Simulated assay, not measured.
Amino acid sequence: MSQEAGERLVVASLNTRGTSIKSSRLVERYRAIGAAFEASEVDVVNFQEVLTYYHLRHLTRAMPSFGTASYRQSVVGPAGGVVTFSRRAVASTKYKRFPMLSAEQTAGVSQLARLKAPLKGALVSRLVEPQVSIVNTHLLANFDGDWSVTNRFYRMHRSQLAGLARVVGSAQAPIIVSGDFNISRESTLYRAFLSETKLVDAFGGECAPTFHAEFLEQGRTPHCIDFVLLAGPIEVVSAELNFTGKLAMPSGSGYVSDHLGLCAELVVAE
């Protein structure tokens, strides 16, 4: 597919968690994130961990040129913490929670992880032009850094990935899926998910770690756990990481998140 035969679309993804709650510097970080996207050519941003309406309000104020913020309302904030900001008109938005987990699937994990798991899901926004489905997702975190079959989080992740696969399968193509999957690119979970959904990695399997090593325990290795995945007639022009270094903020330079961001320039077939 030649670039002349389609429409250019730049899509980004970022988990906005940042540092610990005690030193979050939320307002400063969100202003820095917003300023970076305001100065960019990005059309659509999938954000994760926008946990409350307080978070959402500050992010919206920082990104005035993004006319639409798509999410599903919940009691305290956007459902699942996922919000899609778009400079393009959005035709429809829907949110789907992942399946409830059984006691067997949650065996061995903390009470907090069991409480968070039912809140996870995927947000699907359909753009007016180009006509493409944008899927924004965030899976449960694996605090062990181990994605093997015997790990305590394995069955939970497998269930959530099955739920995400069903969301992708029901979405209208072309489809762009991005977010914080919390599974390593090297894992069998990741490979099985791509095999089932037939999604293609915009980075071609060459993406560097998407988590800052400074936020890991000593001795832990960062992995690529955030992805931009594609289905349908979409050409990848370029794909790169952003927010790779510290940014200047009023109280001192710092990372805007514990995650790095992803950005892909695409051409969607007409």
Score class of each variant (00 low, 15 high):
residue 33 I to Y: 10
residue 176 I to M: 02
residue 248 A to L: 12
residue 2 S to I: 11
residue 256 V to G: 05
residue 234 I to V: 12
residue 226 D to S: 07
residue 223 H to V: 09
residue 120 K to M: 09
residue 128 V to R: 15
residue 184 S to D: 08
residue 136 N to C: 08
residue 164 L to I: 03
residue 80 G to R: 03
residue 199 L to F: 04
residue 112 L to S: 12
residue 143 F to I: 12
residue 11 V to W: 03
residue 15 N to E: 03
residue 261 G to C: 09
residue 141 A to Y: 07
residue 252 G to N: 07
residue 175 I to W: 02
residue 129 E to P: 00
residue 81 G to I: 01
residue 109 V to P: 00
residue 51 L to N: 13
residue 162 A to T: 13
residue 220 R to E: 11
residue 115 L to S: 15
residue 27 V to P: 00
residue 177 V to I: 13
residue 251 S to Y: 01
residue 232 G to K: 00
residue 85 F to Y: 10
residue 237 V to I: 15
residue 152 R to Q: 10
residue 43 D to L: 05
residue 201 D to G: 05
residue 219 G to F: 07
residue 204 G to T: 01
residue 30 Y to E: 09
residue 85 F to K: 04
residue 67 G to Q: 10
residue 96 K to P: 00
residue 61 R to I: 04
residue 242 N to M: 15
residue 43 D to C: 06
residue 230 L to R: 05
residue 28 E to Y: 00
residue 260 L to Y: 12
residue 63 M to P: 09
residue 245 G to L: 02
residue 181 F to S: 05
residue 97 R to P: 01
residue 269 A to Y: 10
residue 241 L to M: 11
residue 20 S to E: 13
residue 246 K to I: 08
residue 178 S to Q: 08
residue 112 L to G: 02
residue 143 F to Y: 14
residue 183 I to P: 02
residue 103 A to Y: 11
residue 239 A to I: 05
residue 120 K to W: 06
residue 110 S to T: 15
residue 258 D to A: 07
residue 243 F to H: 14
residue 259 H to K: 10
residue 7 E to R: 13
residue 186 E to F: 12
residue 180 D to N: 08
residue 234 I to N: 01
residue 245 G to S: 15
residue 121 G to I: 00
residue 141 A to S: 13
residue 57 R to C: 10
residue 107 A to D: 12
residue 29 R to P: 03
residue 209 P to G: 07
residue 161 L to R: 06
residue 96 K to Y: 11
residue 225 I to S: 03
residue 76 V to G: 12
residue 212 H to K: 08
residue 117 A to T: 12
residue 78 P to R: 07
residue 12 A to T: 03
residue 162 A to R: 09
residue 30 Y to W: 11
residue 158 R to P: 04
residue 196 E to R: 14
residue 177 V to P: 00
residue 198 K to N: 12
residue 24 S to G: 06
residue 157 H to G: 02
residue 33 I to R: 05
residue 148 S to F: 09
residue 51 L to G: 04
residue 4 E to S: 13
residue 29 R to V: 07
residue 88 R to Y: 04
residue 188 T to P: 03
residue 61 R to V: 06
residue 177 V to T: 13
residue 245 G to M: 02
residue 55 H to F: 09
residue 40 S to K: 09
residue 231 A to T: 06
residue 145 G to K: 07
residue 180 D to T: 06
residue 243 F to D: 03
residue 160 Q to T: 10
residue 33 I to V: 13
residue 203 F to N: 05
residue 7 E to N: 11
residue 39 A to H: 11
residue 52 T to D: 03
residue 254 G to H: 05
residue 47 F to D: 06
residue 149 V to E: 13
residue 111 Q to K: 14
residue 160 Q to I: 12
residue 127 L to M: 05
residue 39 A to Y: 08
residue 211 F to N: 02
residue 79 A to W: 01
residue 236 V to I: 06
residue 13 S to W: 07
residue 11 V to E: 03
residue 36 A to W: 15
residue 116 K to Q: 14
residue 136 N to I: 00
residue 158 R to E: 15
residue 112 L to H: 13
residue 151 N to H: 10
residue 82 V to E: 05
residue 153 F to E: 05
residue 93 T to I: 08
residue 167 V to S: 06
residue 250 P to W: 00
residue 146 D to R: 09
residue 4 E to T: 10
